[in-house]
Design a protein around this nucleic acid. Structure first.
Lengths: 142, 142
DNA sequence: AAACTATGTAGTAACCATTATAAATAGAAA
DNA sequence: TTTCTATTTATAATGGTTACTACATAGTTT
């Protein structure tokens, strides 16, 4: 996620205001790289502003998603949609044991290698997810 | 998805029975390559057996997922989890305009290229999703 | 500064996909 | 047939998300 100042500028461009609640939610989002759910963001926000409503967190996260500042990631059915708050393109590894989504380094592969169906399409983003069992869970299994 | 006979064998191995309801649901699943939701499968099932309950469809799809016969794909928030019933490894293109998930051809990229975080992990499957706007929607936009 | 307007927030209720529960049913084994 | 177990059905409960309403706030104009 970009610095708060840049996001504030993007908000103003859309006619939106940088309220204290939005500022705090954006700060929490830009700090958290653990692919948090709305509820996890909400609980972090409450530590600083205990009177913020869940609705405001939902609204702000929806606005940030519309601005392209954050991105939804596969939620795997545990307690809600998860959000990726990292601006840099990167990939994921999902451990089916501990159900954690890890970030991977490295550049995305080129879409040209994936057949002719993409001819004439506008590519905006690509996301690789690798599934398996992480080293920690493999050790526990023994 | 594999032929019904092979799936029946996999069921028996787990001590599960191939009931008429399960057989029909599996047939619908193996026919449908459009990444259907549970409700879409349910409505197809009703055409042949109108008295099958939604719960049975949920249960059977959960069992098939546990057996690895089908796989959840990113649902993007429209009406439920979508399932991929294709046995062959392949990738997806998601059009953010018409919200359709297209299949792509081509081989998966090698996980070795994605950094050291995968050292010692057991890789089982990988899935690339390309995001953008499909040729049809691009034309309409003009 | 006061009044006006538009936007944002909070709280509650509604929504809908999914899961849990309990009763009815079917099929296999004895 | 009787019993036992797995399955199906119907309904209720759950939980994340959205809709709605009233109130508060910020920015602007006079």
């Amino acid at each position: 996620m970009r610095p708060v100042e840049e996001i504030a500028a993007a908000l103003r461009e859309k006619g939106l205001k940088l309220t204290p609640q939005r500022r705090l939610i954006i700060e929490v989002l830009s700090r958290d790289r653990s692919h948090p759910t709305v509820d996890e963001v909400y609980r972090q926000v409450l530590r600083t502003m205990p009177e913020v409503s869940r609705t405001t967190v939902y609204n702000t996260i929806r606005e940030m998603t519309a601005l392209g500042e954050i991105v939804e990631v596969q939620d795997y059915g545990d307690g809600g949609i998860r959000y990726d708050t990292s601006a840099e393109a990167h990939h994921h590894f999902f451990c089916r044991e501990c159900r954690t989504l890890f970030d991977l380094d490295g550049d995305p592969p080129l879409p040209e290698r994936y057949g002719g169906a993409l001819e004439g399409a506008a590519i905006e983003r690509q996301q690789l997810t690798v599934y398996g069992v992480c080293p920690g869970c493999l050790k526990k299994a023994r």
